[in-house]
């Protein structure tokens, strides 16, 4: 499992204050998600592409991830052109595809890709820990931030346990198939993961209590907004305004 692979880098995008990146990513994504113009969506694509370029984030890896998302959109392309009312584009048997439907599917595809690319460029270029840290500075409840920290901290550990257990199953010639035996085996695998994690969480809690944990999450490193960090939200805002005008 390769997690957060884009966060290792040393470009000026990587060094930027994560708070400014989060705020920009959220506002820009909402702007793209709620607008209803194909031109705006197409023009908006420029922003994440420039950011990916500035962050020197691998083009090949980005494309590979986009492939995964776009496979979700295939179903939309299969259905939407045929269900959207409008002028006929072409006909297959009793099914007629409409221009408006195809344009709608195209717009959704564009929106999806723009938002995901923005996320990869801005949020992907920070480590998960610094994002969680930045979120506490932005005022999300402390319990959520703690939960986020714990979850991410142990995803790797639990995944390793999962891999050990599935290797053990493979050694015993387990072959997944569509039968009760398969479902029961997977359920016991999940059950075992739950049991191991439950025990681990008790040990963690005990260790934390020994070290004086009282529920407070201390932040040692405070962020300082530099002039550069105001640049990003400003640039994205101007860009958004510009494409609304150009259209």
């Amino acid at each position: 499992m390769r997690l957060a692979e884009f966060s290792y880098g040393d470009s000026f995008i990587h060094r930027m204050d994560p708070r400014s990146k989060i705020v920009t990513a959220v506002i820009f994504s909402v702007f793209v998600a709620v607008n209803n113009s194909l031109q705006v969506c197409a023009l908006a694509l420029v922003f994440p592409l420039v950011m990916l370029g500035l962050g020197r984030i691998s083009f090949v890896k980005t494309l590979r991830r986009l492939g995964a998302i776009n496979s979700f959109l295939v179903i939309l392309w299969l259905v939407l052109p045929f269900s959207y009312p409008g002028d006929p584009l072409f006909t297959i048997g009793a099914w007629t595809a409409t221009q408006q439907g195809a344009l709608m599917a195209l717009m959704i595809t564009l929106k999806s890709n723009v938002i995901v690319l923005t996320m990869m460029a801005l949020l992907g270029s920070s480590s998960i820990f610094s994002l969680a840290h930045a979120l506490t500075h932005l005022g999300i409840p402390e319990k959520i931030a703690l939960l986020f920290f714990f979850s991410y901290r142990y995803v790797h550990v639990i995944n390793t346990e999962f891999e050990t257990l599935s290797r053990a199953m493979k050694i015993r010639s387990f072959k997944p198939n569509m039968n009760i035996h398969t479902y029961r085996s997977y359920a016991y695998l999940v059950g075992m993961l739950l049991v191991k994690s439950f025990d681990r969480s008790n040990r963690i809690m005990a260790a934390m209590k020994c070290r004086g944990f009282t529920g407070k999450f201390y932040i040692l490193h405070h962020y300082q907004m530099k002039r550069m960090d105001f640049l990003l939200p400003a640039v994205s805002g101007i860009f958004a305004a510009l494409i609304m005008v150009v259209r």
């Binding site: 939960l147 714990f150 995803v155 550990v157 439950f198």
Partner: peptide
Amino acid sequence: QIPKVGLLSAVFFVA
């Protein structure tokens, strides 16, 4: 309960 819930949500993530 935070460690317990955090780890359980990691289990669901892995599952």
